[in-house]
Design a protein around this nucleic acid. Sequence first.
DNA 1: TTTAGGATTCACAAATCGTGAACACTTTTG
DNA 2: CAAAAGTGTTCACGATTTGTGAATCCTAAA
Lengths: 254, 254
Amino acid sequence: MPGNESGRSLKTLENALEIIDIIQERDALTIGEITDEVGFARSTVHGYVKTLENEDYLTKQNGSYKLGMAFLDKGGDVRIRDQQFRTTIPKIEEIAEETGERAQFIVEEHGVGTYIHTAIGNNAVRADSRIGKRINLHASSAGKSILAHLPRSRVIEIIDQHGLPALTENTVTDREALFDELQKIRDRGYAVSDEESIGGLRAVGAPVLSNDTVIGGVSISGPAHRIKGERFRSELPNFLLGVTNELQLRLEYQ
Amino acid sequence: MPGNESGRSLKTLENALEIIDIIQERDALTIGEITDEVGFARSTVHGYVKTLENEDYLTKQNGSYKLGMAFLDKGGDVRIRDQQFRTTIPKIEEIAEETGERAQFIVEEHGVGTYIHTAIGNNAVRADSRIGKRINLHASSAGKSILAHLPRSRVIEIIDQHGLPALTENTVTDREALFDELQKIRDRGYAVSDEESIGGLRAVGAPVLSNDTVIGGVSISGPAHRIKGERFRSELPNFLLGVTNELQLRLEYQ
DNA sequence: TTTAGGATTCACAAATCGTGAACACTTTTG
DNA sequence: CAAAAGTGTTCACGATTTGTGAATCCTAAA
């Protein structure tokens, strides 16, 4: 990844964040297991773990350490940090209820998308999209809606940093093809994902705009056998555009 | 607070966590403002902030630093970390829908309660209870339900560590009175809060149990003018106990 | 009771961090 | 248009903090 590391980085802090990442990945680990993973001395790891535990960033459950509630606390704040998020979240619930499908709100930060909210309608499929989860912007309809409204230079930066990995055989992996598609998205106002991130899953997405800047992207997704024909080409897109237009008005006048 | 600090603590890490706390409290700060707050040199703070920013724990928005999406990512994991949480969360939605009031699920960790999920029914009052928020266990119905099913020694530990601060004039602040009430809660199976955490707000709470250990507590809360009489004394408690009993069965057999 | 696995403490050596001053970059203001 | 005022950023050095393995202390099994 090309240079974004600016300034000196604090080793101790980086080590701590690495330990946190390892625990997140593996769910629950003893000090010994963490030691094997990071390669520091056990006593060293012990110091890190105890400091994090004291501040509630880690918690011990039957002998193993897990991520603690401090993350939920901080994360909850992030989620409602902006009035814009608070305005958008209930709309996502509405969309899910009205369409019966899954509705999601993602935002871009550091070049990747993060789920701020997800809601499921009556018919919605289960999907792995918990709040806070990260996704590639180029492979989702909401993500592409966001990219379409970011300055070209920023999009290039993001591609340089994260690439255009193929998640399915339908993922757009070509730079020029992506730029063409982003133009199309700007023209008609919405984006689609035809099994581009998960096989069998289609989605329509639209940007959430306020004063010409893109706050995030909203998407409606469901199984390809249900999201097809008129529903895929006009019904859902039109419904979605109605919601995002209304959202834009509320965001600009609140 | 009496000694729970075990072992050596890593200063660098503690400093970083302090900076994070300060930013959380004040929402968005420049490096200069953080410097004023913590008293380190500007260059020192700069190092911390940049390291955190690189790992997405902080993000810069119009010149100020805010908590970043890494917290939402980690926090989202914490929330669905246990199968028990995943089983309970949808039940909370049901409760809110059925009763029209606010329903909440909290768990105990390090002696304080943390909201894992909150849902609002049609008539529910707005309240400051975002996911991840911390509360005192002794002042809420769900919290007292949890305390009632923790070993006495643990309850004493928690009181020693966090005290029994009065949040309203109805809060139980006396140690013995609290122990009496916990006994009563065990006897009848549920707890109530009569404006003990917020004026005008009543709640009924019950523990979520599985194999004789308490996972957390569930509560239904609403304005005192609506939560009263039969509804307060039997209707809501019985409904809640029905749900938590069912939940217990599912938790033990899943 | 013994044993084994892990957690915890300790003192020392080595690496890391904290620092202010200097520099760079923006935006405001005269 | 220049100066000023506010940032953010870099640097080298000295002081503090951290990393370490060995020793000790816990539990929980054998």
